[in-house]
Design a binder for these strands. Structure first.
Lengths: 235, 235
DNA sequence: ATAATTATTAGTTACTTTGACGTTTAATTT
DNA sequence: AAATTAAACGTCAAAGTAACTAATAATTAT
């Protein structure tokens, strides 16, 4: 079989920015790199793409390796291809970001990679261009969460409004008026109020809510402005 | 020097979805592929990444090769990496989309590639996964144009409101109320009214406008909803 | 027991933006 | 001079937004 001769081949990797929310702060899961170059330094979880894998498959595999989780929210972020980004060998990296329920993770924590959660505000210096990847991922979830309800992916099955609010406050690093926040939220119809209350953080207790999965899927692409009702148009 | 042994190398390409607006319709520039496989079929303009090139550099080079243009709007769209996408050899492709002023192009049209503009609504079948790339690009500019003023990139230096409106109508394949459209537009403060009128399309003539470049840059990242004034927060 | 405390939830108001629709204007053509 | 036509301007009710006041349900202190 004929091939594209003389074209230069290179390595292609996938790196994952894994976000979690502990109920108070937004965090990112990092590993201590175990091999040369830059062994011993903090890094994103990643790996090379194999011959028969698609990019999404590779990203899911890598995520599963580190967290034991499958079927979580995973989205391609950006391809990074500076010729010198990896000092050892020319490598293109496709960055993905994942939003996981941090509690599901903790049970199957993987010591093998020396993984650790870091506050997004207190990240160590990372290898290669991983700092830039993380910055891009933080920007992306800010962008996307302003228009789509993706942050629910970070929450456990049942959660409280104050939790949800501190998640938004963490992501945007700002204070939000709680009365207006509740009103916007409930007007989306995405929340189902449960009987039970969480009393761990207050005397009164905050009602638990769960996500209306059907409405969540239906409203996921909805967003507003500039074009009247663009969600009705995008096909 | 040590290398990542045993990891499988592959080809990495860049493909460009080039959008233009002729004053009435949104179009995409395609080429007739001149080599095996799939020679003679319609295709996006693309090329392999060379050893010392970044992805953006490669995309700009490819765009320049076909259009003769430099410094135009170019944005990374998505990396496509299905193992079978290119039947000949494993190739990852990073798709970019470009928004160009179609009039600047026409002067330096390049016959060498047998390039041709197609209506986005009447596209021929393309090679490999280029159809999917085009679909993704159309979706992306719909998404982005609903929130950011990117469509100005498709217009010449001076343009009329009716032109701008039919551009938006073309992108979203819908009718827009012209009174409300004008109001939204002028409220952005992006437009500067010129003395001159374009009388080619009506008796009364429509005033030409130009873009306030300073405000354009300042407002480019602005968008609305969910989080009050997110544009003030994103840093 | 009662009062104080505190996070949570409900309600109010002035203001801005939106979408739908009616009218006038500036030119050309008849 | 009248008819024509696209362009530009104007109005209004309804919906949404941000800022703020008030009430509630529990716990803790007296």
């Amino acid at each position: 079989m004929i091939e594209y001769t003389k074209e230069s081949q290179m390595l292609v990797a996938v790196d994952c920015i894994i976000f979690g929310f502990d109920g108070e702060n937004l965090k990112i899961l990092l590993i201590k790199r175990g091999f040369h170059p830059e062994g011993g330094k903090w890094s994103l979880m990643g790996g090379f793409i194999e011959k028969d894998e698609s990019l999404d498959e590779a990203a899911n595999k890598i995520l599963h390796e580190l967290t034991g989780l499958k079927g979580v929210y995973l989205e391609q972020l950006h391809a990074f291809g500076n010729p010198l980004r990896d000092p050892m060998e020319r490598t293109i990296s496709i960055a993905y970001f994942a939003l996981i329920d941090i509690h599901k993770y903790e049970r199957q924590l993987n010591d093998h990679y020396h993984a650790e959660w870091f506050l997004t505000t207190e990240m160590p210096n990372l290898i290669f261009d991983h700092n830039a990847m993380v910055e891009a991922a933080k920007q992306r979830i800010r962008y996307k969460a302003a228009l789509h309800p993706i942050l629910f992916e970070l929450l456990p099955r049942k959660f409280t409004i104050p939790q949800l609010q501190s998640l938004y406050e963490g992501v945007y690093n700002t204070r939000i008026d709680n009365r207006n926040f509740i009103r916007k939220l409930t007007s989306t119809g995405l929340l189902i109020k449960l009987e039970e209350k969480d009393k761990s953080n207050s005397k009164k207790g905050a009602f638990y809510f769960k996500l209306d999965k059907k409405k969540y899927k239906a409203k996921f692409q909805a967003f507003l402005n500039f074009i009247p009702n663009p969600e009705n148009l995008i096909s």
